[in-house]
Amino acid sequence: MKRELLKFGVFAILVLLAPLLFSGGYLMNVLVFVGINTMLAIGLNLLLGNAGQISLGHAGFFGMGAYISGILTATYAWNPWFAMPLAAVVVGLLAFLIGFPILKLKGHYLAMATLGLGIIVFIVFNETVDLTGGPSGLSGIPNLTMGSVTFDSDVKNYYLIWGFTLMIVLFAVNLANSRVGRALRAVHDSEVAAKVLGVNTSLLKVQIFTLSAVISSLAGSLYAHTMTFVAPASFGFNFSVELLTMVVIGGLGSVYGSFLGAALLTLLPEFLRAAHDYDIIIYGGLLMLMVMFMPGGLVRGVPDLFRKLFRRGKESGHA
């Protein structure tokens, strides 16, 4: 437990100091996205990594958070701080209700059903033009404010988003090492054994699905208020796959792995600007290579690799 706290402390300090090292608005802006994607990846990882339940529709929950916040504040002039929790409640309720039938499905079927759900949501974003502005998007979403501070610059947004991200990180770390986290991992390893020990697995799966959707919604609301503009294109099937890639690359079930995956997948396209169109090939290739050669993700795979290299080095040294 102490080690977990230490890890979190180091991580938090690095996050807080980062703006001093990387100045420049552009990079700060990218790091804001790393924060949002980290939240989303952690949310999905709770479901996929801990409970072993896949979702290919999380971009939908992310989008719903963004749109509900966006519409309430831009069209109806609500206070963002009220819109955000309301969005979370609505998305959570929806996830909870749909969770019961959807999480009865397993494996491939669950993947397809969540995918279908995500696409339906995406179509609704596009078609309810009066509400969402349709394919051309919704603009004029206000920035968040706190007292006299308006979060309108990259650095301010950085601290806003990462404040929330750190909270989610701590939240997820605590959860993983608790009664509920253990029960979730138990469901992953052997659902029937978990049931026999008294774990209400179907309820638990729905609960974690709901929590995961709420985290995505929160990330969506924050995204809407930092970007001040949302369009359906950000919430399509491709983004669900991107989230999945982050989680798999980082490491299933690992909170800091989710951060690594999110950071890598957010920064990579920025560094590969010239190769803009190649990014989907890179995602596809990375997904396949990771599953084949490093199924534990970077957090487990890289240390393993070093260990192997080191051992080999020693052996050849002896020879």
């Binding site: 491939h108 090939i281 596809g284 997904l287 199924p295």
Partner: peptide
């Protein structure tokens, strides 16, 4: 993609076929 997979759990198979589909799509786009 399919045969070399060592841990052929449903989730891994979903991920690898999704990965494959994106890769093929990307190559077609190029």
């Amino acid at each position: 993609a399919i045969r070399p997979l060592r841990q052929a759990t449903p989730i891994n198979l979903v991920i690898i076929t999704i990965g494959g589909s994106i890769l093929i799509r990307g190559l077609a786009m190029l």
